[in-house]
Simulated scan of single mutants.
Amino acid sequence: MSDTPLLSLVIAVYNGEKFLSAFFESIKNQHLNSVELIVVDDGSTDRSAEIIGRYASEFARFRVVTQENQGVSVARNSGLALANGEYLAFPDIDDVIYPGMYNRLLEIATQNRLDVATCNGTYIYDDGRPAKKIFPSDRLASTGVIDGPTWLQMALDSRKFLHVTWLNIYRHDFIKRQGFTFEPGLRHQDIPWTTEVLLTAERVQYIDEALYDYLIHSASVSHTPGTDDTRMRSARHYMKILELLNAINERYPEQVKRVPACHWQIAKEGLGILHSINNIENPDKKREITRELFERGIWEMIWRNARGFKQRWRLGRRYFRLKKIYKAS
């Protein structure tokens, strides 16, 4: 057995006892010849550690890291620092990975010397709605080998792109050379990660093959009505995301010239912030987050990056209402 595995799976776990057995079985069913599992138990308080221990002997390379709960980004960074594989993947434990997924991605990655290999997946709803592809085939078709900026522009232009790590594998040397890590403490950290990875990747390929089921639970936090406090937290997370995206755009000006949708996506995510603010019912909390929007320079950033009449119209019609709230604070 070679000292260097072909693939490292970096697996963040927090209270995953409901999913871990099925997840590890799905990895066994991949029938990978050269894989390393790095399981980061991020302070679980349920039976996760027991289940992880039960599977440790079923894989040739299986490493467990136990740490205090610090969130998925820190867990991934802990695993990333220990990874030895030629390629990296960051699967979520509560989804379904088809048996051939990683072998298929490794096939195109090794044949074509890819920095990033990516596939399609399927949205699976637990409330009876029919399943559907994550990336509709009429919006995003399979590609040959292209550079990352080209793929990012195509993907964002589709208006159906999902910034996720779990549909991809990454060449480890590329990630290491760029020094990429995940932003600690940030929800939806995949947005800045994916953007920067693709802006700098030289060889990328997408295959329109649905090899992953993304399970959408109707009772999950992200799909149930929020409170004022959750809306404020969401707004602040996305303000941080916008600051990160803006910094990325400034770091790679030549690439961004080729990907004008990098500006569009800042305004698009910014409109989500405005929607959260609009739904806050408590006047004091609404004033507080609106003041932050203007004083952190987030509004100016959103407006500066808006592209096209539709985005500017949607922003403009909200401006005077927000400014009135801000002046009253």
Rank of each mutant, 00 (worst) to 15 (best):
Q189D: 04
D190E: 14
D190S: 14
I191K: 03
P192F: 02
T194L: 06
V197C: 13
V197W: 07
V197Q: 08
V197D: 06
L198I: 02
L198S: 02
L199D: 03
L199C: 06
T200M: 14
T200L: 15
A201P: 06
Q205S: 10
Y206G: 07
A210W: 05
A210D: 10
L211A: 10
L211R: 07
L211I: 14
D213I: 02
Y214N: 05
Y214E: 06
L215W: 02
I216K: 08
H217S: 11
A219P: 00
S220G: 13
S220E: 13
V221K: 12
V221M: 12
V221P: 07
H223P: 01
H223D: 04
T224A: 05
T224Y: 02
P225C: 02
G226V: 03
T227Y: 09
T227K: 09
D229G: 11
D229P: 10
R231G: 00
M232Y: 04
R233N: 09
R233Y: 10
S234R: 13
S234Q: 12
S234D: 12
S234H: 11
H237I: 03
H237P: 00
H237E: 08
H237C: 05
H237S: 07
H237W: 05
Y238I: 11
K240E: 06
K240H: 07
K240D: 04
I241E: 06
L242D: 03
L242I: 11
L242H: 04
E243C: 05
L244D: 05
N246F: 13
I248D: 01
N249T: 03
R251Y: 11
R251T: 10
Y252L: 11
Y252S: 06
P253L: 04
P253I: 05
P253E: 05
E254Q: 15
E254N: 15
Q255I: 00
Q255P: 08
Q255D: 04
V256R: 15
V256W: 14
R258D: 12
R258F: 09
P260A: 00
P260N: 01
A261W: 13
C262Y: 05
H263G: 09
H263D: 13
W264N: 06
W264L: 10
Q265T: 15
I266D: 02
I266Y: 00
I266P: 03
A267E: 02
A267Y: 00
E269T: 05
G270A: 01
L271M: 11
L271D: 10
G272R: 13
